[in-house]
Simulated assay, not measured.
Amino acid sequence: MNNRNELYRLATQQPARHPQPTVKARDLTHLIFQRPDLNEAARFLTDFGLTVSRQEAETLYLRATDATAYCYRVQRAEQARFIGFGLAVQSLADLEKLTRIPGASSVEKSEHPGNGYYVRLTDPSGFVVEAVFGQAPGKTLAHRAPLHWNLAPEQPRINATQRPPIAPAQVLKLGHIVLEVADYQATCAWYTQHFGFIPSDVQVLSDGTPIVTFMRLDLGDIPADHHTLAIAQGFMATYSHSAYEVVDADAVGMGQRVLRERGWSHSWGIGRHILGSQIFDYWQDPWGDKHEHYCDGDLFTAARPMGIHPVSPEAMAQWGPRMPRRFTKPKLSLANLILLIRNLRRSPDLTLRKLVTLMRMFG
């Protein structure tokens, strides 16, 4: 289907902006994982560029260089899995509004770094969302400045060389989280309705069916990252990857060198995305979960309308290596096969035809 207006009509049923969201999230604050080995988790994450801010017997906290108490929480558990993430809201009144959502907790005091208050919710796909207010910021950590490039129209670096330090890429901030879900429509609608997320770009199949939504925060006239949350159609609810901003392209490249030399598994990169424009590089932690270094991403205000784009492997990057099939290949197990059959019977968004189309397209 080549008619862009028809693609837009079909894809705007959902996702779409909600006219009166419950609250408007202000930031992505942290991720929550469970891991059997906190020391091994710390070894990868510090090589990746995060800094340990607190380590307890059962919980590990790591942070970026920006003024936050922490951005990554690892809880000791027998099985490795992703639990959920945190979103900052504007006030205690916002937290009270969120308590009225079915299944939400009451407003509780936080005992995590930075303290404050939170409400714990569960989205339609089973991911935990901790809405946070009043968390005290941490001190900004020092990081190197962006390198000055000698470009054709302007060449500021005279009688000087480029020698970035051989060290892990310093993570400036937690940038975004990408989830795969079976209940695509309901999950997208939950985030637009309750946290005011704005769809920036939607990727669709040839019949106009939306398959991936990149969502940004609604900060009004203040520019926001192209996406803080992305939701993709899958056959079960699972973590796809999380992304972390670094200072420049040399930091992305140096991060690759250090992680490769220290024996970690590379996933995909270096390249530049089409939607979001980030220069990217993906790495796997000890449990196979993908973590992305990026820089030079797009920033949109609330005025920017939603874009509609055909989905394909070629639509993932402007340049760089082709996305490997293993990047989107699901973890197959007996339990996951049972879940696939159950979701095919249960979910209105997951059909055999759609599943076969995605498998042929992405392997």
Rank of each mutant, 00 (worst) to 15 (best):
P321H: 09
P321G: 04
D285W: 08
H291R: 07
I279F: 14
I308D: 01
V258D: 11
Y294C: 14
G288V: 05
R262I: 05
F300T: 03
D285T: 07
V258C: 12
R260D: 15
E261N: 14
V247Q: 06
A249W: 03
D250T: 06
V258P: 01
P330G: 03
F327M: 08
P286M: 13
F280V: 14
C295P: 01
H241K: 04
A303F: 03
A303K: 13
T301V: 07
E261G: 07
P286R: 09
T328V: 04
L299S: 09
K290W: 01
D281K: 07
E245V: 04
I274N: 14
Q256A: 11
S240F: 00
M323G: 00
Q284T: 03
D250F: 13
H273G: 10
G276F: 12
D248Q: 11
L332F: 06
C295D: 06
R304F: 06
D281N: 14
L332W: 11
D250L: 08
P324G: 07
I274D: 09
T238S: 06
A335P: 00
P313N: 05
Y294W: 13
E261A: 14
R262M: 08
H273P: 05
G288W: 08
W319I: 02
R322E: 14
H291Q: 14
D296I: 02
P330V: 11
R322N: 05
G255W: 09
H273Q: 12
A335W: 00
S240K: 02
S242M: 04
D248A: 06
G253I: 08
D289M: 13
W268H: 05
A315M: 08
R325Y: 06
F300V: 05
A317F: 04
I270Q: 13
P321W: 06
W264Q: 00
T238W: 00
A237V: 00
G288D: 05
H266I: 09
M306L: 12
V311G: 00
P330C: 09
A303D: 14
V252C: 06
S333D: 10
Y282H: 09
M323T: 06
S312A: 15
V246R: 04
E261D: 15
H293T: 14
M236G: 00
R272Q: 15
D285A: 09
M316V: 01
A302V: 05
Y294V: 03
G288F: 04
R304C: 04
W268L: 12
S242V: 00
D248H: 04
P313L: 13
V252D: 04
W287I: 05
R304V: 12
G263D: 02
P305Q: 11
K329A: 14
G297E: 14
P305K: 07
K331R: 11
G269N: 05
W287P: 02
S277I: 02
I270C: 07
E261S: 12
G307V: 02
V252Q: 11
V311M: 12
K290L: 07
A249H: 04
L332V: 12
L299V: 02
M254V: 10
G307I: 02
G269V: 13
D250Q: 12
